[in-house]
């Protein structure tokens, strides 16, 4: 049975480190598939104007297509070029919760994310997506420094 590794990307350069680590791990495992996931931070409990609501579906499609084109597809192409089995998806939601849900849904062996040390006041108070993931995930999490 093939092993699934979920790699969470944040659209920053630090994501390359997570990708590199997952490539190495995948090669060591042999029969492994890398699932590249990009989560667009979104809350169903935010406040929007009526006009934003009316255009929300259209915007969502645009956001998914842009993230797929700029972040996920290049990462998948890079992995495939190294003869690794890879696919990618874009989701909306809370980053930590969504990455965990995707991992559970795909029966993943672990989630690999990179540590993004850049953070402002909000991250200091509420914690970063990475720290939230480490605390709440249902599968092992590897944080690449």
């Amino acid at each position: 049975m093939s092993t699934t590794l979920v790699v969470g990307l944040d659209g920053e350069g630090s994501g390359d480190r997570a990708l590199a680590y997952s490539s190495g791990l995948s090669s060591l495992i042999g029969d492994a598939e890398i699932l590249v996931v990009y989560v667009i931070e979104w809350s169903p409990f935010s406040f929007q104007t009526a006009e934003e609501n009316a255009q929300r579906h259209k915007r969502r499609e645009e956001e998914i297509s842009m993230a797929m084109e700029r972040v996920v597809a290049p990462a998948v192409a890079k992995l495939s070029a190294n003869n690794l089995k890879a696919s990618g998806i874009v989701k909306h939601g809370d980053v930590a919760t969504t990455l965990n849900l995707v991992a559970v849904e795909h029966n993943a062996a672990q989630i690999i994310v990179s540590r993004n040390s850049e953070g402002g006041f909000a991250k200091r108070v509420f914690g970063s997506a990475t720290s939230n993931l480490v605390m709440t995930a249902s599968v092992p999490v590897t944080v690449v420094a």
Partner: peptide
Amino acid sequence: KGDYSDPNDAGEVSHFQALTTALSG
């Protein structure tokens, strides 16, 4: 609360958002 919202529809307008938008009017 989103108990009946399909997680695959995340990113679309939620019931909460439609309600609060109407309330603001």
